[in-house]
Design a protein around this nucleic acid. Sequence first.
DNA 1: AGAATAGTGTCTCTCAGACATTATTTG
DNA 2: CAAATAATGTCTGAGAGACACTATTCT
Lengths: 213, 213
Amino acid sequence: MSGCSINVFVVIFSLHDDALRVLLAPGPGSGWELPGQPLEASESLEACALRAFQEQVNRREVYLEQLYTYGGPQQIPGGRLVSVVYFALIPADAHRLPGGALRWFRVDELPPLLHDHSGIILYALRRLRYKLEYSAVGFELLPSEFTLSELQHTYEVILGEKLDKRNFRRRILEAGIIEETNRRRMHGEGRPARLYRYRLDAVAEVKARRLFP
Amino acid sequence: MSGCSINVFVVIFSLHDDALRVLLAPGPGSGWELPGQPLEASESLEACALRAFQEQVNRREVYLEQLYTYGGPQQIPGGRLVSVVYFALIPADAHRLPGGALRWFRVDELPPLLHDHSGIILYALRRLRYKLEYSAVGFELLPSEFTLSELQHTYEVILGEKLDKRNFRRRILEAGIIEETNRRRMHGEGRPARLYRYRLDAVAEVKARRLFP
DNA sequence: AGAATAGTGTCTCTCAGACATTATTTG
DNA sequence: CAAATAATGTCTGAGAGACACTATTCT
């Protein structure tokens, strides 16, 4: 076998303080980089990606999808480097404060990044926005029960634009991917909002639309 | 560096004899498999993919896009195996008869395949059909000048359904991705058809929509 | 009562799909 | 002039986007 090494990186998105954020690790030199690690001998690519942020997340289930595999002809000491990049969405209520030196950055205020990681993040963001249009991926950033206003706000933050309240609700409800609960959220001020959850079969459908497998 | 090896496979589509076909190589045992080869030390993933079918194609420019990277935890003797899979489209007039033991198979009549290659082909086909809807990828299977009937026929073969002639022409022309030439195709019988070509800036646009980079 | 947020319906316009006839060439 | 293929336009229904007011809770 030729001397080669594979790194798995993850673009981890989450939503807090009214902004979409990415988790980054301090790089070896001055900049930052995506969290990642070398693929170990007997684990799958996906398992390796999960390791990259298991300490950041309380929940076991997260949305994880392969993004792209980079492998230019660059030589590194000891062999060549191939990077497999995933992207992940974790719900606002499920992540811990970053441990170690990791930090959350707003996607619109990224620090200087090593390698081509800023290009990769922009690509992941493009794909997230795109998927938001045709799949139900937005729910992956919310707790399991949420109000329609919260859901709309999630969409607005990711897309970077305001949406019409009535059209948004009509579209989401007609799509049949969420269902009412009997519960409501009281936040002290204003009329309490009904809580919704995504339907279990809708979750299955979203998984079926995943790129692969 | 850990002992690991990377193979690059390509799902190569082309259109002839009224059917969408895939190029396959005889496997080590009894079944067939996708053409592919180990990644060499100082080449990019894409260059390795191009090597896989450079002898099948006259033209230098082909449509090539990364599909997915597989890397289960399976052990193979001497290390683990990661497979990067691309998919390629080559125009009907640009491919040679397969050299060596390679053969073209209709996608609806695949032979027994090794590994999970039949699943990979089905996934590539799904993606091709999907891309046909929102990008101009269909032109990549035709010669540089073509009639609208030929283009429609290409779409029909890939999608596996008949399309309405007037709606098809309206949609394609309104999309502004092709332009008339002054030439016509005479085929001895019936009224000669005007030849079209895709617009150069449309080609650029399609490239911009490519997944990455 | 007032402040704050939740929730609801209509109209218009654009786009997609169904559909049949005329036009041009060859033998 | 018959056979073969190319080329063309209209109608209708569904879905997307613009738009403003009422309802419920808390202090």
